[in-house]
Nucleic acid binder design. Structure first.
Lengths: 347, 347
DNA sequence: GCGGCGTGCTTAACCGCGTAAGTACCTGGA
DNA sequence: TCCAGGTACTTACGCGGTTAAGCACGCCGC
């Protein structure tokens, strides 16, 4: 086979020059054709495209990046919080969703764990300079987040995974935590609860702030006897500590809402350790469901949303921003309550 | 200030040409100096280096990649298994560890979720061609894994996160699961257990196979009455199902060892749902500890290892391989048993 | 019949780096 | 004195794309 009659195909991956040669045009024309730009006839374009996928051509991302064009990579920076990164399924689910949304457009994900916001801004700058990334995603936005301002100023395509109140002029995706919290609280009130407490997340985060504000407003509206929010660092240990603290008083709450799944599970164990029966003596609601919520006994009533789909939509939003299409803040379906065994009427 | 006497510094990020100009040498000399290659005097080298960090120079990774040099990026491909990716803390912990190990050498991590091994091999090929990645890490190796052969053949720097038996000629990092399993089983036997069952992971994975073989051998050596391994897909649902199956027979096991944390937690709930008391009626051991193991009641006895550190060592190994330093299979500290409340003498 | 213009393509100059090949200079040995 | 050989550097090209500028050609109106 291939007895020298035809030149052997190049062993290396084909470059755009190979495609151009095969299609009988110049490198430049091939580039125009492949990128859907004007300046080539439709006939030529289809010839080039045919040649390209006959050869299995895929442009080198490095070369594209160097020439100032798209790199086909989206960047995600994650600030490593004390211990929550690995523990909460949230991030990994978000990442798989992002990845799926990006992969559908042949984009890949560059991940960088950072120490603080300063470092994060520096990473964004470097990425931008290198063209190693076409746009970035940030999450866990704070109420007054330096990253947002820096990105806005730079004009770099960016998507904020967080509420519009913290996104400035950047594109963002969010789900309305106020609606979800209201659903949970109204459900508890309907069951008869009057003393509800919330184990909140890190207070400086924008979504925590929204939840806390909603919770307070809701308590006033529904005339609850008591409705406090105690902040935490999202860790199981802290969740257990706060739970014991909340349950240690005389007029203890009859229902607890937790800002993440890990704390809810820890809180359940803490309550049971104090001799309380869930849901008989105490109702528990977890925010953001995860498989562990369904695995403990009783299974936890939770505010459920599809985090992976959330990530996919965020990815699509970023791709739109990269394409220069106008993007605003879209809001995803809010989390909805899935009642399970951990909620019941108060004693 | 800067009244035209000296040329204003470039607003764009400095390139190597700027550094060369500042140091009064040619671009080429600057490149040699910065990359620690011979051909420049020590005096010149230090002048160049000084100029570089006075200007805050960082080489463009795209340009380096294009020129065939290092890109400063390591690639990790993750096959998305049914549902385990997001659920098991393992991956996220591994990733943070990897990231830390890479960041220490200014490397970053490119993550790609793939559908199957074919896709994965294709991704590796593309990365290699593009120079977009200097080396790759693979995990969840199977007993006869096509990826290993493909990588070996290509000669691309790669590190297998898995046992040497499945790593072929590639560098690998592993912890001796046989030792860990033996520790757990001997501990249970010392407590008096004679009927121990194991809820294993996906049977085709190399480490599952090692664990299963060790378990069988150990049972023979210790003369256990029964010691079966039932495979599973690592999901909580499957863990619960297998648990019910194992406990539904007359001469049921008095101790269960689970191949991951999620199944152990699910198994605990399943057993409790059948009216069994843990650890009184049944002892449970989880493999790979995670915060949830400590949050459930009783807290689960687990085989503990520092997964993040494991990732960091894997990263270092890959960097060594990229540098062309000889690397073999290093083995990490095996997981050790941390007895908690879920193990006790049999009834 | 001729200048002007849009179309479709080619040419060539980059992007920022690495590096082989070339050059200038110094040293030392015959 | 002259040349071989090493050192320290410069020059120039290539990596694989993108893209501004240039050019040939057909078509139009006057």
């Amino acid at each position: 086979m291939n007895r020298g009659s035809s030149p052997p195909p190049p062993a290396r991956r084909p470059t755009i020059a190979d495609v151009a040669r095969a299609a009988g045009v110049s490198k430049g024309a091939a580039s125009y054709a492949l990128n859907g730009r004007s300046g080539v006839s439709e006939a030529t374009r289809s010839r080039v495209v045919a040649a390209a996928d006959a050869l299995g051509f895929r442009a080198s991302s490095a070369a594209r990046a160097l020439a100032g064009a798209r790199s086909g990579v989206a960047g995600l920076t994650l600030r490593r919080p004390a211990r929550t990164l690995a523990v909460e399924p949230f991030y990994m689910e978000l990442i798989t969703g992002l990845e799926a949304g990006l992969a559908a457009h042949s984009y890949s994900l560059l991940l960088q764990v950072v120490h603080d916001h300063g470092h994060e801004i520096e990473v964004h700058r470097r990425w931008r300079h290198d063209h190693s990334v076409d746009g970035v995603l940030i999450c866990d936005v704070g109420v007054d987040d330096g990253r947002v301002a820096a990105l806005e100023e730079s004009g770099f395509p960016a998507v904020v995974i967080g509420p519009p109140s913290a996104s400035g002029g950047l594109a963002g995706i969010w789900s309305d935590d106020g609606v979800s919290l209201a659903e949970a609280v109204r459900y508890l009130v309907a069951l008869g609860h009057r003393r509800i407490a919330r184990v909140g997340g890190l207070p400086h985060l924008a979504h925590t702030e929204i939840r806390t504000r909603t919770f307070t407003a809701l308590a006033a509206e529904l005339g609850l006897d008591s409705a406090v929010t105690v902040p935490s660092d999202y860790s199981g240990e802290d969740g257990a500590r706060v739970t014991r603290e909340l349950l240690g008083v005389r007029e203890r709450p009859t229902a607890l809402v937790y800002d993440n799944d890990i704390m809810a599970v820890a809180g359940l164990a803490a309550a049971q350790g104090m001799g309380l029966s869930v849901p008989h003596d105490l109702s528990i609601v977890a925010w953001d469901d995860s498989p562990v919520c369904r695995l403990v006994r009783p299974p936890l009533t939770a505010l459920v949303r599809d985090i992976s789909a959330y990530g996919t939509r965020a990815a699509r939003l970023l791709l739109a921003a990269i394409d220069g299409r106008p993007v605003g803040s879209v809001h995803d379906e809010p989390a909805h309550l899935s009642p399970r065994g951990s909620t019941a009427p108060p004693p």
